[in-house]
Nucleic acid binder design. Sequence first.
DNA 1: AATGAATGAGTGTTCATTCAT
DNA 2: CATGAATGAACACTCATTCAT
Lengths: 203, 203, 203, 203
Amino acid sequence: MASVQRSGSFIEAARRAQIVDSAIETIAEFGYANASLARIARRAGISKGVISYHFAGKDELMRQVLTDGLDLAEAQMLPRILAGTTALERLRGHVEGNVAFVKAYPRHLAAIVEILANARDEAGKATVEASSFTGPVDRVADALPVGQEVGELREFDPLLMAQSLRGAIDGMVARFAANPDLDLDAYGRELVTPFELATRKPD
Amino acid sequence: MASVQRSGSFIEAARRAQIVDSAIETIAEFGYANASLARIARRAGISKGVISYHFAGKDELMRQVLTDGLDLAEAQMLPRILAGTTALERLRGHVEGNVAFVKAYPRHLAAIVEILANARDEAGKATVEASSFTGPVDRVADALPVGQEVGELREFDPLLMAQSLRGAIDGMVARFAANPDLDLDAYGRELVTPFELATRKPD
Amino acid sequence: MASVQRSGSFIEAARRAQIVDSAIETIAEFGYANASLARIARRAGISKGVISYHFAGKDELMRQVLTDGLDLAEAQMLPRILAGTTALERLRGHVEGNVAFVKAYPRHLAAIVEILANARDEAGKATVEASSFTGPVDRVADALPVGQEVGELREFDPLLMAQSLRGAIDGMVARFAANPDLDLDAYGRELVTPFELATRKPD
Amino acid sequence: MASVQRSGSFIEAARRAQIVDSAIETIAEFGYANASLARIARRAGISKGVISYHFAGKDELMRQVLTDGLDLAEAQMLPRILAGTTALERLRGHVEGNVAFVKAYPRHLAAIVEILANARDEAGKATVEASSFTGPVDRVADALPVGQEVGELREFDPLLMAQSLRGAIDGMVARFAANPDLDLDAYGRELVTPFELATRKPD
DNA sequence: AATGAATGAGTGTTCATTCAT
DNA sequence: CATGAATGAACACTCATTCAT
């Protein structure tokens, strides 16, 4: 009762979230190039100007979509990664986290992929750092050298291995996109085995 | 008479090739979204109308860029794959073929990636089948079951493994795009080892 | 009760003055076209809506800016004009008054000039009468016929002469705008001489 | 017959001229701020895109309007100025040239004034040099020092005098704008006298 | 075979204004 | 009194496409 709700902040946050949601849906469905502000606004049932009112520009909206999506991804992945005590357990956690994220937020994932692939400055290259995706998330890459030091894993280039795992997971995502009936849990379990074989130190 | 007709065909083919080349360069440099027909025409030193004259629309041009690029890719890869007699040799040939293609035609590869990521019908989805990329190329997937039958390889889901290899190779490409100084040959050699470990039947 | 009512009026007046000030600064700095209500509000540290609350529209605000500015101009000029007893003294007073105004309120002057030049009804012409600027101010024009009658000045078209003086003074202002280091007092003194020569009756 | 007309260049030039004309009319009638490309196109009876096709942007169109107008002004003024052999004759020629220009091209003049007053970079000041107007035209300023050297004119600051003449002429233009029935020739003749009195060396 | 010209829809963005709170 | 939110029209500009020549 005593707490006076600052309606301004609340409405602001709610609208921004609504717009971000609409942007995610639109991008996921029609692709980045076809996700105009007009379309995003129409889907949200608001006027174009509202977006401009709440976001400095399309760039900021896209950055927010990306940020929100990455936060959700990290929330799915990080606990599963950190739960593991050995490098292989963490690798497994990493895959499971990705599976969980794909299952929980497929549209967010699609939007993230679209933005990372397409958002570039009109003259040249990336408006947004792809590393902001892989960076905060791929803690698994850190786990590999540790596993090598303690003798759990054989010698290999950790970056290459992490990159390959990332690619293999992206392959899973691509397959899921093409076939939504795919059993992601099974795929994830099967995916771990090759990387176990490829990384663990033979007895 | 026949020769007159043919000269038409010849000019036609030359113009199309010139336009496709310019499109590849433009897409590789500025990205799909910034590759307007105007820009492509300007780079080719021709007028915009010429493109419309020789191609039914932007879609057809993009499809041609893709087709040409994939043909070049196949030309690099297929001999190297078929040269192998065992499944593992073919897997190695597949990776080497990809490396060769990236080194020989980096712009084509960039254009292919851009188009596959972005080209969609205005209403919904892909104008172009992603499978048209992996399909004709990933003969390696066919080699895996054979390797399993003859006891060279252990049991696993061949499709998953092929997809993971595809993803791992794409990871290499992404790294190369970010760092053109990357030693692709070394990366390719290193990349094979994990997949050998992951697929071969233990003695 | 009465005091409560008055407090309303006082706040009202203060707010209007604050907004007008911000408008003047904004127009002087960025020009009429770039002086959006948003910019004016931001500079005043208030929300856009406040302006709409206190002014019927942008037009009224601009009219107020103009009125305030012209009042200040008249306050600078009128005493100096009226201090003169002969036509030539009044002419000199007129120039000195202009100089004093430019020196004291350069931003107001800039804003006045901008508004007079730009403010027009969307369909056609001036929202604001240019004569409202020259009208109340150019009392000097009244002094010229008097000077002619008493034999102080030669015969000429008083309106043309007054207009030319106005133009010559505007020339001074333009020069000052381009070069703020200009010695306005000296310029003013020098400016009087030609008009003395041009108006006084030869002995 | 032999001369093959390059229809491209001709149409291009004609269209540009048509657009420039429409821009001049629109600016003169509605003011710079209300002279949107849409309005200019509508008046010209063409689509908005045509303007973009023939001009790199609104800036270029405005620069062209200015250039064309200044060329016309110079064509009216220069011969009349150069026809004079003494400084006072050139001064008279300058005024007459201005009168001729105002009479022949009042809309051009209005457009020039509007553009010079309003065209500024969004952040700060002039997109276009005001000196490009006065500069090439005000050759009269050059004549004054010569007149002083040969003893035709008394000593005064030539720049101040030229600026004052410029301002007095602008005053004439302003009066003409307010009252198109004004007898410009008479006004011009009357305007010369004060400046003769103000500049010539007394016997 | 090729061009320059033109179109009309669509882009992101800005703006003055309105209004419920 | 004041605000933040929202609107809808207008802005300059880009684009793929069409078409007469």
